[in-house]
Nucleic acid binder design. Structure first.
Lengths: 284, 284
DNA sequence: CCAAAAGTGTTAACCCTACACCCATGT
DNA sequence: ACATGGGTGTAGGGTTAACACTTTTGG
């Protein structure tokens, strides 16, 4: 099938010649961030919000604060070049010859959005032969977790913007499918690894942690049972401090135990499933 | 870094020319099979067994029946060509331009060992620039589950052989590291997906299922609790039939429920960890 | 005063673990 | 007979899910 699209001509600048057919290698970053920005607005204008969702989809309106959308955000850039020029896509690009895919992902993320990634995890490879119209391109995607929201478009990207995960515009290439796999990979990894620290500020409340879980699993939890379970994991320090700006009681502040990395989500040894979670956990 | 190793010369047959540096793409198969062949021999000669383990490591002796080794086997081929000629390695090879990585993996497995894979799952990408001395090679590994043990070496492989997972010879390339990741991926996937059916014969006993789990997680389980838990998953049909060739009572035969694919390992909804297993399960 | 969020405890059901006895079978 | 592996049941402890009232705070 078509893949070596650039013909060699004598004297052409630096063509790359191989004995066997090759593929281009790219790395993509599906960057998640947690931003429960807009406290839910009065439910009166709910139909308007639905509309704004659609709008933000197609027009990329800047962080519309309409409380219905997911607080879990994903970073997209607008492509500045063909193919799929002006489409939204995940930051990423070609991996250099001397880089691993992971290094390439970090570099491209930095170049296109200025973000550094405190945590990234590779989850699957997309190698369908025609997924890129130019030539064969195999992409290695990473889901990336960060609390840094200041993304600025640069390099190949004309625009960079956070979208709620439940309201993405149409995406370039097969990035829609990649996104679905990224969500699945995040959900799976969160079972084994306490990834909260990469999505929450250093100090946070139990409500925030709960909102994070609810956003990721699209599920509601009982407030008291949730807190009990989280505390039982042994990953949290009770900060003791209180502060808030809401018309309600002040909440306890928690921080992550620094030395609790690489542990399972629960400390007690309820062997719910015969597997040893210790064996499965990533060593963070 | 060095990667385009074949220089183009005028008139050379079909060189592949690209505008940008490329990589070669390979797919590797880490094929697991479950074979509790040798009922444990008398423990008398246990030190001899330890020795035989070492031997089978280095010399590849054919399926030494010394009951101490893991019944979980992995398939290796002996490389017939450089680099790493005569080393043991995983079956695999270059992905053709019109194939996905998965298709390439299945094809290479078939070519080199004659095996068909009822189940395979991709788990990670290895892209370290110098992992192959010839040029940059990115490999997409799959762990493969099968009950078929009749592997015959062909194509690039001079020999094909099953090794117990706890007793592998030294491997070509970075295949040792790939193996470790494959084991981890298998353990992780087994938490969410009932992969037993791909490693056990159509009819099996609870003891066999337990032995499989114990081999995978290197852990012992209580016989009665294990059976209770497995039956509670709803994936098993009580075959009712009995047969065996052992000096003991005949065991109940189980089969897998055909229509129980894509389910979690447990039926009851103990939300042990807040995550919804349904969301995480692969759709098998 | 009121709405909104946070703190707190109890109970009943369920699940998990550990453990002992008996049965069928081949040697 | 006996060793081996298989079938079965139970009691104690722990965990989970469901649930209601009070407190603090800002408006």
């Amino acid at each position: 099938m078509a893949h070596a699209v650039f013909k060699y001509r004598k004297g052409e600048a630096y063509p790359w010649v191989y004995k066997y057919p090759q593929t281009a290698l790219t790395a993509d970053c599906i960057v998640f961030s947690f931003c429960p920005d807009s406290k839910q607005k009065p439910a009166a204008a709910s139909n308007e919000f639905a509309a704004c969702k659609k709008d933000s989809c197609e027009q990329g309106s800047k962080s519309v604060s309409c409380g219905k959308e997911s607080p879990l955000k994903v970073l997209l850039i607008k492509r500045g070049a063909d193919p799929y020029k002006d489409y939204w896509a995940f930051p990423g690009g070609f991996v250099n010859p001397e880089e691993t895919a992971q290094q390439g992902a970090l570099r491209e993320l930095q170049e296109e959005t200025g973000l550094k990634a405190p945590y990234l995890e590779q989850f699957e490879v997309f190698s369908t032969p025609n997924r890129d119209p130019r030539q064969r391109v195999v992409t290695v995607p990473f889901f990336v977790l960060t609390t840094e929201m200041n993304a600025v478009a640069a390099d190949d990207a004309t625009e960079a913007q956070w979208f709620p995960v439940d309201d993405l515009p149409s995406l370039a290439f097969d990035h829609k499918e990649i996104f679905e796999k990224a969500m699945a990979a995040l959900r799976k990894s969160l079972v084994f690894n306490p990834l909260w620290r990469y999505l929450l500020p250093r100090e946070f409340t139990m409500s925030q942690l709960q909102a994070l879980y609810e956003a990721i699993y699209c599920k509601k939890y009982d407030r008291r049972n949730f807190a009990r379970k989280m505390l039982s994991t042994g990953h949290l320090n009770d900060g003791g401090l209180n502060r808030q700006g809401l018309p309600s009681r002040k909440a306890t502040i928690y921080t992550f135990k620094e030395n609790s990395g690489g542990c399972t989500l629960r400390t007690n040894n309820s062997k719910f499933i015969l597997a040893d979670f210790e064996q499965i956990t990533n060593s963070l």
